[in-house]
Design a protein around this nucleic acid. Structure first.
Lengths: 224, 224
DNA sequence: CCGGATCGTAACCGCTTTGTAACCGCCCGG
DNA sequence: CCGGGCGGTTACAAAGCGGTTACGATCCGG
């Protein structure tokens, strides 16, 4: 999912870009109207975040230009005093707006809502380092590799390990998460599941690169 | 198509209800959290419109409660100052939001967009890739080929798959969409319907080209 | 009333997923 | 040196899933 961010304030631009990148989005940056449109044509992003107040001609022009060539979702960044411009932006065809200052959390929630509304949502997925788990389709992607299909239990195991990526996860906790009360105390269940998961995801299952054993404690997912 | 509207402001509630009814939707109303949930369980609406700011406990609680029992689309109504609540609502799983004041036209456009994404659109034709489904005549056209007549159930199945083209659709969701509550948990029903549909639309039903199985998850319509 | 279309239900098959047991090697304390 | 605990591995059984065939009930137009 690629997002174009346009803002002439370098600090804010970097902040927004960082927050988006952190959340797993691909980010393209521009600081003026001209390069914004050039970037748009070159990269064809799935969403555009656009400061309404740019020095070289207003953000409205960029918005209009983008609307002229695509129906991609556009989110405007405004300050409260620009009420007037905001109305124009929405009339031109911007889809949403965010009033500065805003928290990264707000930004992400809005961006996700926009993508969802546009039907571009990536689905329920969880990522850390080179690993990305799609909970919807039960598939795991490593780096640029092809997706590996996981079973229901493997997905549940991966879910907790990935959520706690880099940290050791207690065996008892893994058991509880995957099997519920039933699995309590049964090491063999976990042993087997780890074995089967390693066969699928490790280049050399005998020398794990991702799913490491922390002897006497539990397991840990390495993310480099 | 049934829509539950929850708002403690009677005027706004009636306004929204009127606009929806005018557009041909069935409308169910509630003015507090308790009756909202009671109505939800009793009527099982296809979409919920929910004021974020209810007196008897926040609208967030209702949203969470609904998400706990269904994946029905939820649209939140907010005012600009409720930014913080809105973010929470989106994170909880609300699908869209509308900032008061809004025009009936905007409301209807958003509602239709949500229904379309959920595969519930009452419109007469739905297309993705080389596939086009006519809901009126229950016929499916592939590329330049001739129309294939589908049965009522086959059409409903195709409708949701097509609305979610390219994405895996959960078996339970398909069951709910085609048979409603009745089909819950009955894999055999779905198995049969998929089989019969494949006989009609696949060049070689044994090696599906369009309607793919995602083992342990559900089905996916490929659109190339 | 006949005959086809539609749909639900059951049974069977083969494959995958999951559970269970047994065995192995390693480490470590006594 | 011995024995037990731990984790990995192999092997096999049980359960579940998805595809398929078959059959009966129902509905509806001719």
């Amino acid at each position: 999912m690629k997002i174009l961010v346009v803002d002439d304030d370098r600090d804010l631009l970097e902040l927004v870009a960082f927050a988006l990148a952190q959340a797993g989005f691909g980010v393209v940056k521009a600081m003026d109207t001209h390069s914004a449109l050039a970037m748009f044509d070159a990269e064809l992003p799935n969403l555009v975040i656009l400061d309404i107040n740019l020095p070289s001609g207003s953000g409205l022009k960029v918005c209009r230009a983008i609307r002229g060539r695509s129906s991609v979702p556009v989110m405007m960044l405004t300050v409260r005093s620009e009420e007037e411009d905001l109305v124009k932006a929405l009339e031109i065809g911007a889809d949403d707006y965010l009033t500065k200052p805003f928290s990264p959390r707000t930004l992400l929630a809005r961006v996700r809502a926009l993508l969802r509304r546009a039907g571009l949502e990536a689905g329920d997925s969880l990522a850390a380092g080179r690993l990305r788990l799609d909970l919807e389709s039960h598939s795991l992607t490593i780096g640029e590799g092809s997706a590996i299909r996981l079973t229901r239990l493997e997905t549940r195991l991966m879910q907790l390990l990935l959520a706690q990526a880099g940290k050791v996860v207690n065996a008892e906790r893994l058991l509880a998460h995957v099997w519920g009360q039933r699995g309590s105390g049964d090491r063999q269940l976990l042993k087997q599941l780890v074995h089967r998961l390693r066969q699928k995801i490790e280049p050399d299952p005998a020398v794990p690169r991702y799913l490491h054993t922390e002897s006497g404690v539990g397991y840990r997912l390495t993310i480099d």
